[in-house]
Amino acid sequence: MAKDGVLIQARGLVKRFADFTAVDGIDVDVRAGEAFGFLGPNGAGKSSTMRMVGCVSPPTAGELKIMGMDPRRDGPAIRARLGVCPQLDNLDPELTVRENLTTYARYFGIPRRVARERAAELLDFVQLAERANSKVEPLSGGMKRRLTIARALVNEPEIVLLDEPTTGLDPQARHLVWERLFRLKQQGVTLVLTTHYMDEAEQLCDRLVVMDGGKIVAEGSPRALIDRYSTREVVELRFAGESQEAFAGKLAGLAERVEVLPDRILLYVADGDAAVAEVHARALTPASVLVRRSSLEDVFLHLTGRTLVD
């Protein structure tokens, strides 16, 4: 086993497509049993990284070791111990829900009887047992995603790769997926996920890296990142009128940092209520005021000057 329980180790990892560099020299260590996240906007290089880790995309340069093995040489042996939940569901539309699991198990060389048992367990786990004989097509987006997650678990993997596990799902479906993933984590499965939802990253990840433009711009636990790159509280002000910009000047000295977005102004402060009182004392009357805790969204904004979801 790899030293210090590091399951995935990347050093100077690069992925280039023709003249476009998707991943630009990243260093990553994922340890056994943790939930590790890649947080970043679309096009940050998260999916390209996941495909390299999943051994379906050869790295252009740099070093990548997965469970101590080299993806270039040991692809099949590594993939035998990975579970992959891709960004777009690629379930088999000609098979039933149950057959999607049993057939997939066969690709791993799992005996038929074991495959049937595991399919039944997993369908219970993702709450699809009642749909076992249904085709895939009529399932809702959330059900398909849960089935894809079940399929990723059919070989009892040591690492599960989840690329945008809840993108496109409604809030209720997302919470159900999160809850299942959290349970997996409790069982000691190493989770590696990409997301552009900061709430997802905060909920699920023990540790994460923030990616932008193919590079890692920060690394740490969600809490540590927030403490380091943001203030305790944030005041969101919306002013009526065309430009928020015009009001920004009048807020000088109120906050550690001021971010002016097209539709609102963010004040980064230790004490939100005190800052709001000061705003009112300056005879400013914003159309709406919201005081909240700092989130990863603020970390990302600080690091890149952009919001996560455009």
Binding site: V56, R79, A80, L88
Partner: peptide
């Protein structure tokens, strides 16, 4: 269209 092989290639199958 079915993207079937993308799924299969995530397993040990080459």
């Amino acid at each position: 269209y079915m993207k079937l092989y993308d799924g299969i290639l995530a397993t040990p199958v080459q």
